[in-house]
Amino acid sequence: MSEIDAGPATVVAPPAVRARAGRRGFGRLLRTQPLGAIAAVVIVLFVAAAALAPFIAPFDPTAQHRDAFLAVPGSPYLMGTDDLGRDIFSRVLYGARTSLLVAVCTLVAGGVIGMVIGVVSGYYAGGWVDTLLQRIMDTLMAIPGIVLLLFIAALLGPSIRNTVIALSLLVIPTFNRVSRGEMLRIREELYVESARASGCSTWRILRRHGLPNLLAPILVVASLTFAIIIIAESALSFLGIGTPPPTPSWGAMLSDGSRYMEIAPWMVVFPGGALTLGVLAFNLLGDALRDFFDPKQSTR
C-alpha cells in the first residue's frame, strides 16, 4: 500500500489457482475473459511501442528543443514538450522501454531467485534448509522497503541495473511464498509420493513434477507483480533514486511535471496516463489468468 512497496503487499498466493497450464488458447481466453483479452492486446501494443520506439518516436527523447520549452500538445510535438524542450511523446515511448525493461528484468531476477528458494524450501519443508531460507526471507520482509531501496541507491548509485537489484530484493519473498506453498501442496500429492517410491532422484522429481505445476500460479503472480514493479519504479524515479536522468522514465517525468502541473498539465497527464493504462492492463491480465487457470471457476 505504500507507494514503493513492491513487496508482498498486494500479491498473496492466489488461493484458487491450480495447474492446468498450456492447453488452452487465446481464443478461449478471449471467450471466457474478454477483459483479460483486451488487456493482453493493450500489453502487446505497449511492448510494440517500446520495442519500436526508435522507429515511431519523432524525436530523440533526450534532445532539448530550445525554441520550444513547455510547448502545447500539437504539431510537431504530439504531446507537447517539457521544461527542457524535450518531446513528451518520444519520452513516453522510450519511458515504456524503461518501465518494461525494469519490470522484466526484476521479474526474471527476483522471480527466479524467489522461486528457487521457495521450491527448495518447500521440498525440504521442516528441515534446516527450509528453516534457514525462510528466516532469511522473514528478515528481508521485516526491513521496510524504502530502507532497502535507499540502501541500494546509496551503495551502488541510481541506475537501471541497480533499480532492478533493489526491486528484485522486494519481490523475492513474494515468489518464495507462492512457490513454497505450491511446493508443499504438490509434495503431498500422490504422484510425487509414487515417484519417490519408484526411486527417482530429488532433482528429477522437482523437474518433472514440481516445476510444471508451479507455472500457472507463478504466471498469475508475475503479471500482478509486474504491475506493482512498474509503479514502484516510477515512485523511485519520482524520488530521484531510480532511473537517472536524462533517460526517460514515467516516474521521473511525473516528478518533473509535478512542478508544472497547473501550467503544463500535459507533462503529467501523458506519462501518468500511460503508466496507469499499462499497470491496469497487467492487473486485468493477471486477474483473467487467475480465473482462466482455475478449473473450478471456468467450468461454472
Partner: peptide
C-alpha cells in the same frame, strides 16, 4: 466485470500521482 475494472483501476493509479492531482 465493471466492479473489477473499477477496483483494478484503483490498484493501477499510482497513489503519489493521485495525491498530487
Amino acid at each position: 466485470q465493471s466492479l473489477r475494472v473499477v477496483s483494478v483501476a484503483g490498484l493501477s493509479i499510482p497513489n503519489f500521482w493521485l495525491g498530487l492531482l
